[in-house]
């Protein structure tokens, strides 16, 4: 069983979003990190890069797999988690405290299309 945190929003591609004003913090869910195995590299966008909802903004790599990251929201990258450059395995240790990027959202209403913890829990149950 993978861990799911209340109060976050989740996408079908297993990213989570935490909203604080117009800033969205984005990471990957416990389910995502478990299905990847040991993560060896996180490909992140640069600060000030524009990203669009449902479009790819990076990738997470394990030894034998790579999984693209899809942005749950549109906006401009304000921050990337530099700690992941040196220690990508942090995503395996705790995918919820170890976020990947922060984005200044164009339209915070985009969040409404995402799942809450209960809905995501059901969604994941269907995949496990």
């Amino acid at each position: 069983m993978s861990r799911i945190i209340e109060g976050l929003s989740y996408s079908e591609s297993h990213e989570w979003v935490k909203v604080d004003g117009d800033i969205a913090t984005i990471g990957i869910s416990d389910f995502a990190q478990k299905s990847m195995g040991s993560i060896v590299y996180v490909d992140m966008p640069e600060e000030d890069d524009r990203i669009e909802q449902n479009e790819e903004f990076g990738a997470v790599e394990s030894v034998k797999a790579a999984s693209d990251l899809y942005s749950p929201v549109s906006g401009v990258v304000t921050e990337r988690n530099a700690a992941l450059e040196d220690e990508p395995g942090l995503l395996n240790k705790d995918p919820y405290t170890n976020w990947i990027i922060r984005v200044r959202m164009d339209n915070p209403a985009e969040i409404e299309a995402l799942m809450d913890a209960a809905a995501y829990s059901e969604f994941v149950a269907g995949q496990e």
Binding site: V40, Y41, A59, E61, S62, V63, K64, A65, A66, D68
Partner: peptide
């Protein structure tokens, strides 16, 4: 660094 390669990353 095999995740760069065709057998894993395919068109990317």
């Amino acid at each position: 660094l095999q995740a760069r390669e065709q057998h894993i990353r395919r068109e990317k």
